[in-house]
Computed example of a mutant assay.
Amino acid sequence: MRRSIVPPLIFGIVATAILMSLGFWQLRRLEWKESMLTEIQSGIDAAPVALPQQVDSSMKYMPVLIEGRTTGDEILVLSGTKERGGGYNVISAFETAEGRRILLDRGFVDQDQRREERPPADLRVRGNLHWPQEKGSATPEPDLEAGIWFARDVPAMAEMLVTEPLLVVAAAAEGETQGVMPIPVSIEGVPNSHLSYAVQWFLFAATCAGMTLWLIWRIRRRTY
């Protein structure tokens, strides 16, 4: 019995078209994501403003300028940099000149600086509002005895340091910096894998097309 090439040909064309469309969809998502990241970076780099009275997470990355004094109360969050290796982010309770008590991510200290005293210090800080999403189901709970946290959890840190649930990440600081190196907010950690997903779908489409051609060749060879 002669086997028809029509069913596998139709199936192959439809499957390849679907896989190709998924690849092009990912390319459109890539364009959207790159546009969004450009917009975020523009917001991060904008001129800083005074800290708004009413703040919410829709203001994420807003550049602000604050003046005031750290209280000496702080949290150390396990961190690291390419240049200096492992260390900690110093999250301080900060009293603004207007009398508000907020969280300030002052930046990075290395392992040797962990136990150094950081008494109250006057600072003028340019930074960005931030609500980092770092705590997941696998994140350990803070080691309160050792004074080490494993993620910046704004509500929990605010409760611990008795502040508003509001975090400013320092981009630059003037005053008694006490050796803490600011690590500005950036878009480097924002995932953008759409190009690799697009390549995968196009490879699947190419594989599907190749297998369809091979199957048709086998059917025609057996037929004749």
Results as ranks from 00 to 15, higher is better:
214 W>T: 01
75 I>N: 05
50 A>W: 01
217 W>P: 02
161 L>M: 06
196 S>W: 09
39 E>A: 15
204 F>T: 08
223 T>V: 01
16 T>D: 08
134 E>G: 15
14 V>K: 13
202 F>K: 09
187 I>R: 09
144 L>V: 09
127 G>S: 09
99 G>E: 05
114 R>V: 09
206 A>Y: 07
91 I>G: 08
221 R>G: 01
169 V>H: 00
65 L>S: 13
71 T>Y: 08
152 R>A: 02
3 R>N: 06
222 R>C: 03
51 L>P: 02
99 G>W: 08
111 Q>H: 09
182 P>Q: 05
216 I>K: 02
82 K>M: 07
52 P>C: 04
13 I>S: 12
210 G>S: 10
212 T>I: 09
44 I>S: 10
198 A>H: 11
220 R>P: 00
170 A>Y: 03
136 G>K: 06
150 F>K: 06
168 V>I: 13
20 M>Q: 05
162 V>G: 04
188 E>D: 14
190 V>D: 11
119 P>K: 09
114 R>T: 06
3 R>K: 14
118 R>A: 04
8 P>L: 12
133 Q>S: 10
86 G>T: 10
14 V>I: 15
125 V>G: 03
134 E>M: 12
201 W>Y: 11
147 G>I: 01
87 G>V: 06
213 L>D: 00
116 E>R: 08
96 T>R: 05
47 A>F: 01
143 D>G: 05
162 V>H: 12
215 L>S: 04
51 L>C: 09
19 L>T: 12
39 E>W: 03
9 L>K: 04
106 R>W: 07
82 K>N: 11
109 V>M: 06
223 T>R: 14
198 A>P: 00
167 L>P: 09
118 R>K: 15
90 V>E: 03
159 E>L: 03
214 W>H: 02
17 A>N: 03
216 I>W: 03
78 L>Q: 15
66 I>N: 06
107 G>M: 05
10 I>M: 15
124 R>I: 10
186 S>H: 02
